[in-house]
């Protein structure tokens, strides 16, 4: 009886680990998906209306939730704060569910916003949007392959462990 319980628990644990890893892939893909959406909104709002960053963020986060929205809210607060501390921005970026190289891109993306004139900003955004689109596609592909694989692997491994224990 005890063996069945232990086996069952190990199966659940392995499955949860698999789900956890799959979720990290999913969160990363979702974050990049929303970042890509934000790039499109940013591009249109700057190109057509020349809206300031904070206005665009305000419109984008309205009625939305999630890690990227929280990240944007944090960035907006940073912009509005009197003290511009690079560490605060680094911490914000580090909290994102992205890989190290993607975080570097995110930091560069933030650094590229609002510091140059209109024409250059539009050009930079075009380049950044293409980059984010590429990152999103890679992350979505990895979620579908690796993420789901980890989920299935956790489930099957748990099952095998349970059978062995029982």
């Amino acid at each position: 009886m005890v063996r069945i319980w232990i086996g069952g628990l190990l199966w659940v644990a392995c499955t949860l680990v698999g789900i956890g890893i799959a979720r990290s892939y999913k969160n990363r893909a979702k974050f990049l998906h929303e970042w890509n959406e934000f790039c499109i909104v940013l591009n249109n709002s700057i190109k057509n209306l020349k809206l300031p960053q904070s206005k665009i963020i305000e419109k984008f986060v309205m009625d939305k939730s999630g890690q990227f929205v929280d990240f944007l809210k944090g960035y907006d607060e940073y912009l509005k704060s009197q003290i511009k501390d690079n560490k605060a921005l680094d911490n914000l970026v580090d909290k994102s569910p992205l890989l190290k190289r993607e975080r570097k891109h995110l930091r560069e993306f933030l650094d590229s916003l609002g510091k140059v004139d209109y024409n250059l900003q539009v050009d930079i955004l075009k380049y950044q949007s293409q980059l984010v689109e590429h990152l999103k596609q890679v992350a979505e592909k990895e979620y579908k392959t690796n993420g789901m694989l980890w989920y299935k692997l956790g489930f099957v491994l748990g099952l095998v462990v349970m059978i062995l224990v029982v």
Binding site: I46, K50, L51, P52, Q53, S54, K55, L79, L113, G114, K115, V116, D117, Y118, L120, Q121, V122
Partner: peptide
């Protein structure tokens, strides 16, 4: 410029 120089072009 609300950190948006492009808007003040």
């Amino acid at each position: 410029s609300e950190h948006s120089i492009y808007a003040q072009d």
